[in-house]
């Protein structure tokens, strides 16, 4: 009896403790939940609602059902902007990630000046995008920039090239400027991951006769896979949401040649006063991002080591 009573008492005490721990957890979480509801959930629900309305951004909104979504499906400007987002994603999945891997690998090979280079690589990332953009607009100015400086010393191939004024060059040129600010951050992420790879694995690979490239492919890449996947996912989402550099440098021009969905949405909402339509575009973009994240989750559950 006593043993049973003691067990029941212990069980009750344990239940009380669990409830108390749960309560404490909720007390700590409630402020965050409130902030989340106000800052994220509320606006998200409002965006979903406005995407079904004809709304100028001012005054009352008129419910129009799926009309905005139907319009998006036949909007050539949206498709073009989306295509530019895809190109942007392709550029950022290759150039900065390759440069980041190479930079991190090279930095991991040195000990002297490593901190100096880490700082140098990281500085553009923390400089305001408007400053970076202004800097490169001057450097790439067709009359007063690097092209004209090179021409004055007998290297004329960039002289007079209007990087941001050419339909062909505008998008890659803006991507170049954004990449300049971004890739240093990627280097640091990869460098941190590289430093956690067990050095004995490299020694074992060397004993097996692996060269530098084989070590990179068979030891380094598997060792930093979680970081690599994180960077890829971050790159895709950032590329879909890109706005600042495009807006600052070309505002989507010339003639829509560098328009991305972010800048198109901004124009719809704040220049054409089509805030409802812009909300539908935004949700369309979120839908695409969501699909990509779901794809990653699905592959992981199927056993892919990503």
């Amino acid at each position: 009896m006593e043993a049973g009573h003691a067990a029941a008492t212990t069980k009750r005490a344990s239940g009380r403790q669990r409830r108390r721990r749960g309560l404490v957890a909720w007390v700590f979480m409630i402020p965050l939940v409130i902030v989340n509801v106000l800052v994220i959930l509320g606006p998200s629900v409002a965006t979903i609602y406005y995407s079904f309305t004809e709304w100028s951004g001012l005054g009352p909104a008129e419910f129009v059902g799926l009309e905005n979504y139907r319009e998006i499906l036949s909007d050539g400007d949206f498709y073009l902007a989306m295509w530019h987002n895809v190109l942007w994603t392709a550029i950022f999945l290759t150039v900065p990630i390759s440069m980041g891997l190479l930079g991190a690998f090279l930095l991991s090979q040195i000990t002297r000046f490593q901190l100096f280079f880490r700082i140098v690589y990281f500085i553009p990332y923390v400089v305001a995008s408007v400053v970076n953009a202004a800097l490169w607009q001057n450097i790439l100015d067709p009359d007063r920039g690097i092209g004209s400086a090179l021409a004055s010393v007998g290297i004329p191939f960039l002289d007079g090239v209007s990087f941001f004024g050419s339909e062909r060059l505008a998008l890659p040129s803006v991507a170049f400027v954004n990449n300049w600010a971004w890739w240093g951050f990627v280097v640091l992420l990869f460098l941190t991951a590289l430093q956690s790879v067990d050095t004995q694995l490299y020694d074992a690979a060397k004993v097996d006769g692996a060269g530098r490239w084989q070590q990179f492919v068979n030891v380094t890449i598997p060792g930093i896979r979680p970081t690599l996947v994180f960077v890829v996912l971050l790159t895709i989402i950032n590329s879909l949401l890109v706005f600042d550099y495009v807006y600052i440098i070309t505002r989507g021009g010339p003639a829509g040649a560098s328009e991305v969905v972010g800048t198109l949405m901004y124009k719809e909402a704040f220049e054409r006063f089509e805030a409802g339509y812009a909300a539908a575009m935004g949700l369309g973009l979120s839908f695409v991002s969501g699909l990509i994240v779901l794809g990653f989750i699905f592959l992981r559950r199927r056993g892919w080591e990503i």
Binding site: Q137, D141, P142, D143, R144, S162, F163, F164, G165, S166, G253, P254
Partner: peptide, 13 residues
């Protein structure tokens, strides 16, 4: 000066 420069020239320039 050219179509491309028309697109890229800033006010200061």
């Amino acid at each position: 000066g050219s179509q491309e420069r028309f697109f890229s020239n800033g006010f200061d320039t």
